[in-house]
Design a protein around this nucleic acid. Sequence first.
DNA 1: TTGTAATAGTTGTTTTTGTAACTAACAAGC
DNA 2: GCTTGTTAGTTACAAAAACAACTATTACAA
Lengths: 149, 149
Amino acid sequence: MSDDNFDLAQFLPYLLNQAAEASSLEFQQIYKDRYGMLRTEWRVLFHLGLYGRMTASEIGARANMHKTKISRAVQKLTERRFVTRARDDADRRVEHLALTVQGQAAYADLHQVARRYDGDLTADLSSTERAALKKMLLKLSVKRPAGFT
Amino acid sequence: MSDDNFDLAQFLPYLLNQAAEASSLEFQQIYKDRYGMLRTEWRVLFHLGLYGRMTASEIGARANMHKTKISRAVQKLTERRFVTRARDDADRRVEHLALTVQGQAAYADLHQVARRYDGDLTADLSSTERAALKKMLLKLSVKRPAGFT
DNA sequence: TTGTAATAGTTGTTTTTGTAACTAACAAGC
DNA sequence: GCTTGTTAGTTACAAAAACAACTATTACAA
């Protein structure tokens, strides 16, 4: 039935999904086991850990996450005392989010895990390959193939 | 708050997820618009289109999809007359799945789209880069970083 | 001002997924 | 034959995601 050289394992979106899923699996297990976190929650935690105080919208813009996802993630994180919310005085619609001490500890822990994990994943790549891979992925994260119909 | 060279945009699982999501978006829109398909359904369709008659388990093994996902996808696809099921005579637990004429038409259509789409996505890569990228992704799709705790 | 639109974030409802329990068929040992 | 275990696939229920509608606040223009 296969008539030409096309293969699912050559189709970039499929490949990317497979690789993303496989490579996230164990790390996901870790933050779930240790802190009962969901993917969205882990992401918010890391954004705050890496970039400091941010608003929900800013996180959403950076992470390409819908605001409802973030809203619920923040809710969980505040319940668990990982994150604090503070209303902006000038514009009372916006909330500034920041990690608590507990949140920072969790972040520091997972941060370390992530570093090691990433190292493991790319262990058999040369540093040139590694850089090239990440550069290409970064490009693909932004790019939308123009005017496709 | 960021203390070293680690960045989310350098963390492979995150990067892969972002790239996978971004690169799937438009294609997803197409199979959804044209055939009302979900990701799982599209995958099953492609497996049958590419590799011919298969059982649900075989698809699951190849695509790394849980059997319930496949079961539901197959149900939808048979309702829409894209797929037929045939019990195996020797082992009546097993069902052989195959595309109907309609299913083949849909597959042929989406197959073409996928080819063009993939080409567009990788348009600004040299063929060497493209091959390297896909090779690395394929590796990552299989690999589980050994014994991580 | 005041009316309209825009923005930040939340809540409610529907889809989709994940997980576990289930049925049916086969296999292998006794 | 019967038990016990395994495999193929389905179904039921719980968790998570997607989507739309909502509140509250600000912006801005007539």
